[in-house]
């Protein structure tokens, strides 16, 4: 997956591999990413290590070629990510010579917040949402890229490409700027920030097809492999380390599973699968009758769950 052969480097061959549809999405995203670099004082790219972040990073590297990425990456580490994700993150940063900032809410760690005994809501609020706000404040970023897509979830379907946040990172869905043509309004006052979503118009299928065509590396957890899992509340959870205690009667079993989306390991359910290639993942995705975020335990916390989290500052 790492070495791109001479044939692959031939631009005509590579361009031919992308459909008109994917080429259009690629160009649109590159345009959005360049816009931020041109207009903001201190942008940052949120890097969550998942497939969408992978595509976003790949597009950013293309956008500034032959120059380097003119902004750093930021990973909000809740300390509960899969170990494989962290390894992958560091490898990608080293390979491309990227400036990677890693931020953990130290106060949350000191308070002992964790996804198991604190509950998913509090953990997400403190270790992700609060941590993100702290990190943005600490480095004084005025624009932050996120890999969210409009097809993911209902409240995201109305999200702007340039999403305005008033001081304190407040998202008011009623008070967003109209976005006409590609004439994004990039002007803000001190204290205000913008979240930018270059993948707004991509679907999950587009992300996988582009990942395949462009041979973008992804965390191996997306591919099926025998992994130790426990069954809890009808979901398969991979016990990535000893911090997750077993409940009475629970037993670790090895099953062939993969992850459709990646988050904190106790909050991210696996699905049984034999898909070991992107082609098989795509085929499986189209066969499957559940949506991408169904394995994300935090979305089911309450009605209109994502909208509420977003108002609080979640990406």
């Amino acid at each position: 997956m790492d070495d791109i052969s001479a044939r692959e480097r031939d631009p005509h061959h590579r361009r031919a591999r992308l459909s008109a549809h994917l080429r259009r999405l690629e160009s649109e995203s590159i345009g959005i990413i360049r816009e931020v670099a041109a207009e903001f004082r201190n942008p940052v790219m949120l890097y969550s290590i998942g497939k969408d972040s992978g595509v976003m990073l790949h597009l950013a590297l293309k956008a500034f070629y032959p120059g380097k990425l003119p902004f750093p990456l930021l990973h909000i580490d809740t300390t509960w990510k899969f170990r494989e994700m962290i390894r992958f993150r560091d490898e990608i940063a080293a390979r491309h010579g990227l400036k990677l900032l890693v931020y953990t809410n130290a106060e949350g760690v000191a308070r002992g917040i964790n996804p198991i005994s604190s509950g998913s809501q509090l953990h997400t609020q403190v270790m992700k949402t609060e941590a993100l706000k702290q990190a943005l404040d600490r480095w004084q970023f005025d624009a932050a890229f996120g890999g969210a897509r409009r097809d993911e979830e209902q409240s995201r379907a109305k999200e702007r490409v340039f999403s305005f946040r008033s001081p304190g990172h407040v998202w008011d869905p009623r008070n967003q700027r109209p976005e006409l043509w590609n004439l994004y309004n990039t002007r803000i006052n001190p204290g205000e920030t913008i979240r930018v979503f270059p993948l707004s118009n991509w679907t999950e299928l587009d992300v996988w097809e582009y990942t395949r065509a462009e041979q973008i590396p992804v965390v191996p957890l997306y591919f099926a492999a025998p992994r130790p899992v426990i069954e809890r509340d009808g979901q398969l959870i991979m016990r990535d380390d000893e911090r997750m205690p077993l409940k009475p009667g629970e037993q670790t079993q090895v099953r062939s599973v993969r992850f459709r989306s990646l988050g904190c390991y106790p909050l991210t359910a696996a699905q049984e699968s034999d898909a070991t290639t992107i082609e098989q993942i795509i085929a499986e995705m189209l066969r499957m009758r559940t949506s991408e975020r169904s394995g994300r335990l935090i979305d089911n916390d309450e009605a209109a769950s994502m909208e509420k989290k977003k108002r609080d500052g979640y990406f």
Binding site: R9, D10, P11, R14, R15, L61, K62, Y65, P66
Partner: peptide, 8 residues
């Protein structure tokens, strides 16, 4: 005409 995939 420069792109990351080579000149066009």
């Amino acid at each position: 005409i420069v792109t990351a995939d080579g000149d066009l």
